[in-house]
Design a protein around this nucleic acid. Structure first.
Lengths: 115, 115
DNA sequence: TCTACAGTTAAGCAAATGCTTAACCAATCA
DNA sequence: TGATTGGTTAAGCATTTGCTTAACTGTAGA
C-alpha cells in the first residue's frame, strides 16, 4: 500500500490528461480492449499503452489478458481517494465561510443594538 | 471562460503536486500571505511563487496585493468542476454495476425456476 | 503453415515541470 | 535616509512527460 500523498499524486496526475480522462469515461460505461480504447484517438498504439499504464499504476483501472486481447476496466475502489480529498478541502473552507458569516451577522446585530 | 477540458487539465495538474495540495490545505482554513505559505517548505521563494501561480491559473486560488504583502485565498467556486467530473464517472460505473447485478440476479432466478 | 491481428518493447526526441541562484523593486521601519 | 522585509523577474538546468518510429512476440484464422 502506497502512502496517501503518493496515491493522490498519481491519481491527480493521471486525471490531468484529456486522453486519459476520455479513456476513463469510456471505461466507466463498461470494459474495453486496448485497441477499442485506442480507436477514438489519432495516436500511435505505444502512446495509448503508455496512457493505460499511467491509469493502471495510479490504481484507476485494472486489466487482464486473455489470448491476444487485453481487456481493461475501471477499478471500482478508485476515484474515491481523490473525491475524499476534494470533499475535505471543500468542507473546511465552507465551514470557515460559515463561521465568518456568523461572525458578521453577530457584528451587525451588535451594531443595531448600539444604533 | 475556458473550455471544460482545459479547466480540468489545469485543475487536476495543479492538484497533482503535494506542495500545492499542502498550500491548498492551508488556505482552506483561511487566507495567508505568500511568505506564510512558504514557511513549511524547504524551497526557495521563486519555487513557491511558481506553485502559487499554477494554483491561481487553474482558478483554485485568488490573491490580492496590499502594500508589500500579497494575500492568497481559496477561490470558493473551485474544486467543484473536478468533484463533478469524478462524481459523474463514479455514477456511470456504479450504474453499470447495478445493471450487471440485476442481470445476474435475474439469471439466478431463472435457474431456480428451471431446477 | 503462413498470414494477419493485438499488443509490446526499445530508443529517441521536443516540450513541459520543478527547481535553483542572482539580481532586482517597492513598502516599512529605525 | 538607509537597512530590512516581502515579493518578483530572469536565466539556466536536470528530470519527467507525451509522443514518435522501428522492430518484435504471441495468438488466431485461412
Amino acid at each position: 500500500m502506497l502512502n496517501q500523498s503518493t496515491t493522490l499524486d498519481l491519481t491527480f496526475q493521471a486525471l490531468a490528461d484529456p486522453a486519459r480522462r476520455a479513456m476513463l469515461e469510456r471505461l466507466s460505461t463498461g470494459p474495453a480492449s486496448v485497441s477499442e480504447l485506442a480507436r477514438p484517438f489519432s495516436m500511435s498504439m505505444p502512446a495509448v499503452l503508455q496512457h493505460l499504464a499511467v491509469l493502471e499504476t495510479a490504481g484507476l483501472t485494472l486489466s487482464r489478458k486473455s489470448g491476444r486481447v487485453r481487456t481493461c476496466e475501471i477499478n471500482p475502489q478508485a476515484l474515491s481517494t481523490a473525491q475524499d480529498w476534494l470533499a475535505a478541502r471543500r468542507a473546511e473552507w465552507e465551514h470557515r465561510l460559515d463561521r465568518l458569516e456568523a461572525y458578521l451577522i453577530e457584528l451587525q446585530n451588535k451594531d443595531q443594538g448600539n444604533g
